[in-house]
Design a binder for these strands. Structure first.
Length: 582
RNA sequence: GCGCCCGUAGCUCAGUAGGAUAGAGCGUCGGAUUCCUAAUCCGAAGGCCACAGGUUCGAAUCCUGUCGGGCGCACCA
């Protein structure tokens, strides 16, 4: 399916010939040999560095090997030309047929184009967007959400069995505050004069109906009741309400998690003890005193003995506390239990998508996973840099107190999920992303997502016109088209680009960089638009040629292939292809 | 002070696991629409890839150091 796999096979075969001829020694390591598209199209369809890699071990000059390799490749099927180039590349040009037969490949594969089994069905757990249930999602959360979702799709496409997972942080002190906020609203709902919301409580509109419902259901029975009697129940009602909101926000982005795990259930279910026992048996837990932290001085710091995890045994900088001075497990202890739980559910590959402000957390968690799984499982952490929210070129500071929270829902309602998702993927995850509310709204026509969707829509338009002229446009007609009629360099370049999709998918998945899909689609759309406009200047390049049904069929097949790749790529990043713009 | 991330065109950013003459969008300037959607296309200008060393056939990419920016640095999540 991937043309460059075919080309790699050609090069490997040619190298085998050279070995048989004694030009190259046997048993060379070919791992570093690459066959990739050259940056400069004038160098042909592909270039290999084989001669440069193998020269030293062979004790020969790179150019000599390259020359021999070029001769061997000249004899390979579908090779039009193979030439050695300084300092030792071999440039390959393929016959037209090599590229033309990608068109039926693409048409046959449809939305599955680019799929591979490189993952071998391995189970991967992708945890992303585990925002605290203490408020609606904001724009910063959404970056990790879009990234995690697109990465999951990408990994599925290359043959991993992916589980999208959300960790609900419903076990900490913040939930108690949430519960007290409910209690305050509850007394308010009963008509009591409760005064303004105390400092530190959550001024969330979502909590009011929750409190009102309790008031209707239970009357005043909790008003004077001691906190222990209602704290947990109120907290859980609040969490459920917030999670409904969060799930709704995510659904508006087209994101659906497979599994929601509760921190509270881990804590109460004895799983923390189980995980720590596992560490204890390896001698990785001890009672100790940590040195004073280096950074800002902490006023009430005093050296106290704590239960510690020996994270330094696995590369962390210091050992990490498991228990707080009040006796409760730390967040880290619960998270250890959570990741142990993932391991026990069969995940040896875990990916956590976190905000960059959690960067300091990575080493200890990776240490924990290695220890808990006894080196069987591996945790990768993808950090998403924070979103710099701008408002017409001015930085926008978000402040819960001032009520200036830009919620995800507000933005998505305004610009739509497709624009939002695409923008989130037009930056590498570890680079800061500038998100200007004004620009995104006002200049949405300049947004790259429209550029790509427009290409898709234009192709749909061609098919509508073709059908209107009575031209057969169904799959059988397209598959039967004589593609040899396609000969213009612009057409072949377009097919080459479309056929590059499987390679991009593979690389994006390996590098875990879904943004590469977005950039690829932009390029493909650009080549298509260029060809379209050329048809305005050169009549003979128009897609529908009234007097030549064979040529028209070939061009329609080509367009169908391009549209298929556009749709497949957009699907991977969760953006809708459209039939027409409006 | 320590750790992680970033530094590429005026601006926002790519740069295909080290490849050949570093790219795109926006902005600026100049062109293209009887004709499949101009939400498009073509061209021009614009660069000491932060800086200095190193590794090698080859470095924006890897290593070391410096400068600049972001994030983090017991018992929060």
């Amino acid at each position: 399916m991937n043309p460059f796999d075919d080309l790699s096979a050609l090069v490997t075969a040619a190298l085998g010939q050279l070995q048989a001829q004694g030009v190259l020694p046997e048993g060379q390591d070919l791992a570093r040999v690459q066959v990739e598209p050259p940056r400069d199209a004038a160098h042909g369809d592909a270039a290999t560095n084989a001669a440069l890699i193998l020269a030293k071990a062979a004790g020969a000059k790179p150019m000599d090997i390259a020359a021999a390799l070029a001769v061997a490749l000249e004899g390979a099927p579908e090779v039009d030309a193979a030439v050695a180039a300084a300092p030792g590349f071999v440039n390959l040009s393929m016959r037209r047929s090599f590229w033309l037969r990608r068109v039926p490949d693409i048409l046959a594969a449809g939305a599955l184009y680019g799929r591979s089994d490189q993952g071998g069905g391995q189970k991967v757990n992708v945890e992303f967007c585990s925002a605290n249930p203490t408020g609606p999602l904001h724009v910063g959360h959404a970056r990790g959400a879009v990234f995690g979702d697109a990465l999951s799709s990408l990994l599925q496409h290359v043959g991993y069995e992916v589980t999208r997972e959300y960790y609900i942080n419903d076990g900490g002190a913040q939930i108690d505050t949430l519960a007290r906020t409910i209690h305050h609203r509850y007394r308010e709902a009963l008509g009591m004069d409760v005064g303004p919301l105390p400092a530190g409580y959550y001024p969330l509109a979502e909590l009011v109906p929750v409190a009102e419902a309790i008031a209707r259901r239970d009357g005043d029975r909790w008003v004077m009741a001691p906190e222990e009697e209602w704290l947990e129940a109120f907290g859980q009602e609040a969490v459920q309400a917030m999670m409904r909101r969060i799930k709704g926000d995510l659904a508006a982005l087209g994101i659906h998690h497979d599994v929601f795990s509760s921190e509270r259930r881990l804590r109460s279910g004895g799983e923390v003890d189980a995980a720590l026992a596992r560490l204890d048996e390896q001698g990785l837990i001890y009672e100790g005193v940590l040195p004073a932290p280096k950074g800002k001085p902490i006023e009430d710091w005093e050296p106290t003995p704590q239960l510690l995890f020996r994270a330094t045994a696995y590369g962390d900088d210091i050992d990490r506390p498991l228990k707080r001075s009040n006796g409760a497990w730390t967040y880290f202890a619960a998270d250890l239990a959570y990741h142990f739980d993932k391991y026990e559910r069969g995940f040896n590959a875990m990916i956590d998508v976190l905000g960059a402000d959690h960067g300091g957390y990575v080493k200890r968690m990776q240490a924990g996973v290695r220890a808990l799984s006894k080196e069987e499982a591996r945790l990768d952490v993808m950090l998403c840099q924070l979103v710099k929210l701008m408002d017409g070129g001015q930085p926008l500071k978000m402040s819960k107190r001032a009520g200036r929270i830009v919620t995800l829902k507000d933005v998505v309602d305004e610009v739509g999920k497709d624009v939002f998702r695409f923008i989130m993927l037009t930056r590498k995850n570890d680079a800061a992303l500038e998100f200007d509310l004004v620009k995104v709204k006002e200049q949405s026509k300049d947004n790259p997502v429209f550029y790509v969707q427009y290409a898709h829509a234009r192709i749909s338009s061609v098919f509508r016109n073709a059908a209107g002229e009575g031209i057969e446009t169904g799959p059988p007609a397209l598959m039967a088209a004589d593609l040899d009629r396609l000969s213009d360099p612009l057409e072949l370049a377009l097919i080459r680009q479309a056929a590059g999709f499987p390679r991009i998918v593979t690389q994006a998945a390996e590098a875990r960089e879904p943004h590469r899909i977005a950039f690829f689609l932009h390029e493909l759309a650009g080549q298509f638009h260029a060809l379209w406009t050329t048809g305005k200047e050169r009549q003979e390049l128009r897609f529908i040629v009234a007097e030549d049904a064979g040529l028209t069929a070939a061009r329609l097949a080509m367009l169908a292939a391009v549209q298929t790749v556009l749709a497949a790529g957009l699907k991977l990043i969760g953006v809708e292809p459209v039939e027409e713009m409006h």
